[in-house]
Amino acid sequence: MKAQVTGWIVVLLLVSSGCWWLFNELAPRADFTAISAYSDDLWGGWRLTLALSSGALVLSVLLAPVWCAMLMSRLAALRTFAVVVTELVRGTPLLVQLLLVYYVIAAAAGIDSRIGVGLCVLAGYTSVYLGEMLRGGILSIDRAQRLAARAVGFSSRQEFFIVVLPQALRRVLPGMVGAAINLVKDSSLLSVIGVLEFTKRSQVANTLTFSDFEAYVPLAIGYLAVTVPLAILARAMERRMRYAT
């Protein structure tokens, strides 16, 4: 209890001194007139980031069950393929994957859609993580539950869809929302292949107007405007789905 109070006091002191410094030293000197000329650009970048993130999220949610099914397949060849892909994707930075896929693979294939390539890499990257989570969730369901499903007469399909999957999803959903938050943030890396998303536009506006505070504080706030609601959603889900198994 005492440690908790001390912890809160320390956190409050740090945050308030940070805010004080930000708003008393930096903010009064902030001048948004220069950058306001680029507000449409920035707004467009934010919307592109939102669209890219949503698109990649939908794609990765569709792809994740495919990875999961392959990872759990009875066919050794499929399983091995999925394991190799998973390890390749998890073992290299997203930044490297973007550069490699855009400048090497897509270039060789004659594809020149920055947004398309960026979207696909982002979706593929996230789907591998989601697939692994799903597999973990399915494996975590007690064998006794499968036995009970068979005992009440369910077919193997019903066993999976009525008993195993709903319980597995409840366990992994909070983690999946976490992956969605990461996806929104990771979309900023698409700037390296020249996608004019939120981060890239802010960098451009910063270069042209020499405004740092005025370009990067709204940038951070712009991402928080998407990720904080997702985090709140994750917490709400955890509360709703808490139960003993």
Partner: peptide, 20 residues
């Protein structure tokens, strides 16, 4: 086996109700 199970009822030591 599935047909046989449907004619039967089972109760286990640990209840094994579906928690969700």
């Amino acid at each position: 086996m599935r047909a046989l199970r449907r004619e039967c009822g089972f109760v286990f030591q640990q209840f094994n109700l579906f928690p969700h």
